[in-house]
Design a protein around this nucleic acid. Structure first.
Length: 136
DNA sequence: GCCAACGTTGGC
DNA sequence: GCCAACGTTGGC
């Protein structure tokens, strides 16, 4: 299983909305690297949900429930989307500030490439964040 | 709201 | 195919 991190501005689509929706298509990505990362996802992979701009924290865990497919809202036919479902909120959101100062996490792709909206997360990083967020 | 970082576009 | 101009993202 692979791990990922996906960003959304809460004003555009918040974690709470995903919980209400139960499942959603992660559309609107218009960046090749982010798109390629989504292409590399498999159903069953896990992804953190990060609130960018407002909050600036990882708030929950999602599961990839539908494989990559073309995004109908993209006229160019280049960019796609995957389907995601909420698994659980973190008991305590993990803030960007904590991540940037954590020895295991400061070097995450998510930190290094601040503007990339879909990025891979290593198993070690995943474990460390879950520990911070859930105390396990 | 500002602006640095960086991806994309288009003229040449 | 280079690169300047432009647009967008997202932290601050």
């Amino acid at each position: 299983m692979k791990y990922w991190l996906m960003k959304s501005e809460p004003s555009a689509y918040a974690w709470e909305q995903l919980v209400k929706d139960k499942r959603t298509g992660w559309n609107g990505v218009r960046n090749y690297q982010a798109n390629n990362n989504m292409k590399a996802m498999a159903v069953g992979d896990r992804a953190f949900f990060y609130h960018s701009n407002e909050g600036r924290e990882i708030v929950g865990v999602m599961e990839i429930v539908g494989p990559w497919r073309l995004d109908p809202s993209d006229d160019t036919g280049k960019f796609g989307m995957v389907d995601v479902a909420p698994v659980a909120a973190l008991k305590k959101p993990v803030t960007l500030d904590v991540i940037k100062t954590h020895p295991l996490l400061a070097d995450m792709v998510f930190v290094r490439q601040g503007r990339l909206s879909v990025s891979p997360v290593t198993a070690a990083e995943w474990k460390a964040i879950e520990k911070l967020g859930n105390g396990k």
